[in-house]
Design a protein around this nucleic acid. Structure first.
Lengths: 223, 223
DNA sequence: GTCTATATTAAGATAGAC
DNA sequence: GTCTATCTTAATATAGAC
């Protein structure tokens, strides 16, 4: 039923869509091969096992995204000064460029990254952070350059909060887009979401630590 | 092997720990009953099915947390003015109070919420948002009160970014805590994390939209 | 309420013909 | 490279004795 040399690509295409929409663990090889119109056994023939397929799907995107992000950061670091918004804006064009690479590439990529982090699969986290350590380091440098007053601890925590806000938004971008279009009656593309996200992340990253004052209005509830 | 009337509680206790650590789908009933020291069949006897067990685990915490959060927000809303930090600080005491309710309750709760959102189980999201619609509405009001300049759209998006940052941090709080302790050599409790999170979220929520200027330094990569 | 034993289903993976 | 058929494993869930 399948064509000649295109089976591998068909599997990747079907898998990336299903993974993005339902998660890795929740998508079975049978569902993938069914959607791709290829034989069940071909997954193992072409990729070895499911884990490798997951990595292959992510790699296609990361190899397109990460080097582009690295370039942007490099360029920004060679400037005399930079703002925090500029740092985050470095990711904008590399993300949006994925739409040319694959249909709905930007949204798909964002969802896949979200899945990769929230799915318990520790191996993905490891794979991403070690494979692209260099780019992450550039990002770190740029953040420090944009705001040298931040302590190491603040950078550490704020980076993780940032990752959460970005990834969570990415993972649920489809649902959010639907709700937003419904509520505000205007159509939203990936660029609009990214443009909302950038100032939010920049402001958060620059946040000043809180002076320990009184926290709550009401006294502790009875216990 | 199990005691008399405590089987149900044993299951809940074991399940909440395993769910928090490994996720819902990744934790089997066999693992839960094994850890709890009770019979496999007792889960179905006491809870019907796994889905209901998941909801029961979350409910224990939500019923302790949500009303307390609601109180704090009510009190804040009755004040003449409030800041965005105060809005987010409303969640602090209700979260930390969970440590009295169960050992490591705050951390466990945060992780469970994270799992509930990032696991694909749509039913959890639905369950939480409909069951506690009232509290979420109070939160929304408080945000608008703290910063009336925010547009509806800005509030919508910023709320979701906020959710992402908070939930992601919660879901990975254990790992983050370990890394942070290792890197900065000082012990971190849930309160320290919450205190980091509050100003970050408040700053992001107050972020001003970005004027569409030039986004990137480098021209588009070849394609 | 608790247990043993088992039904049922679905998944990943592979052997071997073509 | 592709297919059919099958193996193996592991999960949820239930029936029925005690």
């Amino acid at each position: 039923m399948a064509g000649r040399g295109e089976t591998k690509a068909k599997i990747l295409d079907a898998a990336e869509q299903l993974f993005a929409e339902h998660g890795f663990k929740e998508t079975s090889l049978r569902t993938i091969t069914g959607k791709a119109g290829v034989n069940l056994a071909s997954v193992n023939y072409h990729f070895g096992d499911k884990k490798s397929l997951v990595r292959a799907v992510l790699s296609r995107y990361l190899e397109a995204f990460m080097p582009a992000l690295g370039e942007q950061l490099q360029a920004l670091l060679s400037e005399p000064h930079c703002t925090m918004e500029q740092v985050f804006a470095c990711a904008k064009q590399p993300v949006l460029a994925l739409d040319k690479y694959r249909p709905h590439g930007a949204a798909t990529f964002m969802q896949l990254i979200g899945r990769g982090y929230s799915d318990v699969q520790g191996h993905l986290r490891w794979f991403i952070t070690t494979r692209y350590e260099h780019v992450l380091s550039l990002f770190n440098q740029a953040v420090r350059k944009a705001n040298p007053d931040l302590t190491s601890e603040a950078v550490f925590w704020h980076l993780h909060f940032t990752l959460g806000a970005a990834i969570f938004t990415m993972a649920s971008s489809e649902a959010l887009r639907d709700i937003a279009e419904n509520d505000f009656g205007r159509s939203l593309d990936s660029e609009a979401i990214v443009d909302r996200l950038i100032p939010y992340l920049a402001a958060g990253m620059n946040a000043k630590p809180r002076q320990a004052s009184q926290d709550n209005i009401v006294a502790f509830a009875a216990e």
